[in-house]
Simulated scan of single mutants.
Amino acid sequence: MNAATPGLGYDPADLTDIPGTTIFTTASSRRAYHLHRFCHSLAKPEARAAFKADEAGYLSGYALSDEQREAVLARDYNRLIALGGSFFFLIKLASTDGWSAQRAVSTMSGMSVDDYAAMMIAGGRSPEGNRSIKGKY
C-alpha cells in the first residue's frame, strides 16, 4: 500500500487506475506551461482576433511542442489534456471559437451537445466502468 501524501489523505498514484481519468499534477502543469500561456493570452480581444486571423502564425509566438501545436489546431481537447493541459485554461480556446464549455466537453466525450446535456441532466455518467480498478475510490 502506498503512503498518503501529507495534506491529501491519499496517495495520488492510487488514482491512476480510474479509466478515462487524467490526473493534473505539478509535472503536467510544467509540461503545459507554454500551452497555458497561449490559452491565457486569449483573454484579450486583440489576441483572439490575431489568433483567429492566423492560427499557426499566432502559435509560433509560443514555445509549444509540436504535439501541443497540432492538438490546438485540431481542437483535440483530449490530446491537449493528455499533453498536460488544464481545462480551466483550455476553455479560453473553446470560447475563442464561440463554443460553450458544454460543447467542448461533449467533443471530449464523443457525444453530441444535446446528448451530453441530457446525460448530465439525468445525473451524469454511470459509475459502472468508471471507478478505480483496485476499488479504492
Rank of each mutant, 00 (worst) to 15 (best):
N2C: 04
A3V: 06
A3P: 05
A4H: 05
A4V: 12
T5Q: 15
P6D: 12
G7Q: 06
L8T: 11
L8H: 11
T16N: 14
T16L: 15
D17E: 02
I18M: 04
I18A: 01
I18H: 03
P19W: 02
T21M: 13
T22L: 08
F24K: 02
T25A: 06
T25Y: 07
A27M: 04
S28Q: 14
R30Q: 14
R31W: 00
R31I: 03
Y33R: 15
H34N: 15
L35W: 04
L35A: 09
F38K: 01
F38C: 03
C39L: 07
H40A: 06
S41H: 04
L42F: 03
K44V: 10
K44N: 13
P45W: 00
P45V: 03
E46M: 02
A47F: 00
A49H: 03
A49V: 11
A50G: 02
F51R: 06
K52A: 14
K52F: 03
K52V: 01
A53G: 01
A53F: 01
A56C: 04
G57T: 07
G57R: 02
G57V: 10
Y58P: 01
S60M: 12
S60A: 15
S60D: 15
G61Y: 07
G61I: 14
G61T: 11
L64T: 11
S65H: 08
S65R: 05
D66G: 11
D66P: 08
Q68N: 07
E70C: 03
A71P: 05
V72R: 03
V72G: 09
L73W: 02
R75N: 12
Y77C: 09
Y77T: 10
Y77E: 05
N78S: 09
R79S: 13
L83R: 04
L83C: 13
S86V: 01
S86G: 15
F87N: 08
F87A: 02
F87T: 12
F88T: 03
F89I: 00
L90V: 09
L90E: 00
A94N: 02
S95W: 03
D97K: 08
G98W: 03
G98N: 02
S100F: 05
S100Y: 05
A101C: 06
Q102W: 09
R103N: 06
V105H: 08
S106A: 15
S106K: 01
T107Q: 14
T107F: 11
M108H: 13
S109Y: 13
G110Q: 09
M111A: 12
V113M: 12
Y116F: 15
A118G: 01
M120T: 12
I121M: 12
I121W: 06
R125F: 09
R125A: 10
R125V: 15
P127K: 14
P127H: 13
P127W: 09
E128A: 11
R131S: 10
S132N: 14
K134D: 13
K134R: 13
G135Y: 10
G135H: 10
K136E: 12
Y137H: 12
